[in-house]
Amino acid sequence: MGLLDKKFENSNIIITSLEGVMNWARLCSLWQMSFGLACCAIEMMAASASHFDIMRFGVIPRPSPRQCDVMIVAGTVTLKMASRIRRLYEQMAEPRYVLSMGSCSNCGGPYWNYGYHVLKGVDRVIPVDVYIPGCPPRPEALLEGLMKLQEKVRSESLVEEKAA
C-alpha cells in the first residue's frame, strides 16, 4: 500500500461512511461462482487467465455456491439445466448478483427460434443484474460488465429503502 503510506504518517485514520466502506469491500471481492455452460465459458476462462486476469478485480472463482457473491451465467441454458440453475442460485448467500454473459443466456441467442430445448433467456428463471451482449462477448466485455456490476454495488444502501 505504498500509495497510502506516504499520505498518512502515524495516525492512520480515514473518516468515511460505514456504507462506503462496506460497499467498497464488497465490490472489490466479488467472488464468482465458476459456472461455465458453453462456448462463453471459454471466454470466461480466457478472462481469468494470463492476458486479461480478472482476479485483479477481486473476482476469484469458487466451486461452491455458498461462498459466492456473483454468478456468471456463461453460456446456453437448456430446459434440463434450468431447474439446476435455479437451485444453485437459491443456495447462494445474499446479497447475490447474477451476470448474464452472452446472447444465449440473455435471450436464447442463435437458438431463439428453433431451439426446442433452449431456455430463451436465463431471466425466465432467475433475476439478472447485468446483461453482457455478444456471441461470445470478448473478455473485455466481461470486464466491462463486471465494472457495471461494481457500480451497482457501490450505489447500494445498507438500510432498507422506505416506501415513499
Binding site: 430446459l79 434450468a82 435471450c107 431463439w112 427460434n113 430463451k120
Partner: peptide
C-alpha cells in the same frame, strides 16, 4: 414444440 415444460415457457 410444447408451450410449457415444467412451468417454463418454451417458445421465444
Amino acid at each position: 414444440v410444447p408451450e410449457f415444460y415444467n412451468g417454463i415457457k418454451v417458445p421465444y
